[in-house]
């Protein structure tokens, strides 16, 4: 993994929380995507991807997120992003219309609190 970004994953029941720190551009987007894949366990139903500590993300990062969402959807898993309001990353995502495609919360607590609503999905 290049030192441009760091990926940390943690399992919380059926939720996998993955935090990415640093910068995402063309040079490391694929690497970051693979790291997110490794961090997400087989049993997770939902991936909460916390981008609060991302200081730079451009369209290479947006493409990564769209591909990730598609991949998860095809495996009947959900993707939820956490991006604080007012952060540079939020601005990029808003510009590209990404929040219309991938659910996005400003606060991690809110994303994790959705846990209960996702429960019926576990029995589908």
């Amino acid at each position: 993994m290049s030192d441009l970004a760091r990926v940390e994953g943690e399992q919380q029941g059926t939720i996998c929380l993955v935090r990415v720190h640093g910068e995402i551009d063309l040079s490391n987007a694929h690497e970051v995507s693979s790291e997110i894949g490794y961090a997400m366990g087989q049993e997770a139903r939902r991936l909460v991807l916390d981008l609060s500590d991302i200081t730079y993300l451009d369209s290479a990062g947006v493409a990564l997120l769209l591909r990730l969402a598609e991949r998860l959807r095809s495996r009947r898993r959900e993707l939820q992003l956490v991006v604080p309001r007012g952060s540079p990353v939020r601005r990029v995502l808003d510009f590209t219309g990404l929040p219309r495609v991938i659910p996005l919360e400003s606060r991690l607590e809110d994303a994790l609190a959705l846990r209960d609503h996702a429960l019926p999905d576990d029995f589908s």
Binding site: D58, S59, A63, R67, F95, T96
Partner: peptide, 9 residues
């Protein structure tokens, strides 16, 4: 779908 965000942005 995945490559068209650059210029509008």
């Amino acid at each position: 779908v995945h490559g068209g965000h650059g210029l509008p942005l």
